[in-house]
């Protein structure tokens, strides 16, 4: 577990030491005081399963319930609208999302689909995101929270799972 204060402090550290600069396939990264927002191209192993997939969007936020970092993601795909003949970018919803995302060697993770209000602003609305269930995060990451916990978490939850 990591406290909110420690999480926010390590976000600043990630920003300062440019830890995510070398993330492969990256289109954009935005680090704020409370979360990390990332857009990337789709890794080859996902394109090989579905060639309509266009980009991945991530948010790393803090879960008050689990007191852990929480990875939210959406997969965008491009579809041709047969009625109007134009291409549209839409969210890809997959009933077998675990099979799509995870390499066969990673079977300890579970994915849920839920609503998240990304900013604690009363006027912002909720939106739908896939999330990687964080209940065993502490055991998976290991070590002390003060020792680059968020970097180690990003290494597993973002870089390893999504091959970025």
């Amino acid at each position: 577990m990591i406290s909110l204060e420690e999480f926010e402090s390590q976000l600043i550290q990630i920003n300062t030491n440019n830890y995510l600069q070398e993330l492969s396939l990256c289109q954009s990264i935005q680090i704020t005081q409370t979360r990390i927002h990332i857009i990337t191209d789709v890794p080859v192993h996902l394109v090989s399963k579905n060639d309509q997939l266009n980009s991945l969007e991530f948010n790393v936020i803090y879960s008050q319930i689990y007191q852990e970092p929480l990875l939210l993601f959406r997969i965008w795909k491009v579809e041709v609208d047969s009625e109007f003949g134009c291409t549209m970018k839409t969210i890809h919803i997959d009933n077998e999302i675990e099979k799509l995302i995870f390499p066969e060697t990673l079977d300890e993770f579970r994915i849920g689909l839920d609503l998240f209000q990304l900013d604690n602003d009363m006027t912002s609305s909720s939106s739908v995101w896939y999330n990687i269930h964080p209940c065993d995060t502490g055991d998976i990451i290991g070590g002390k929270v003060t020792e680059n916990y968020l970097e180690r978490w990003l290494n597993i939850y973002l870089k390893r799972i999504f091959s970025l």
Binding site: M88, I91, N95, G112, L113, L115, S126, S127, V128
Partner: peptide
């Protein structure tokens, strides 16, 4: 699906509604 997302509704397929809510 896009309209669902804009309105904060979790999308699901009607023929799989039981499985969607069970998983949730």
């Amino acid at each position: 699906i896009t309209d669902c997302n804009q309105n904060g509704i979790i999308p699901f397929q009607s023929h799989e509604s039981n499985q969607a809510i069970k998983k949730y």
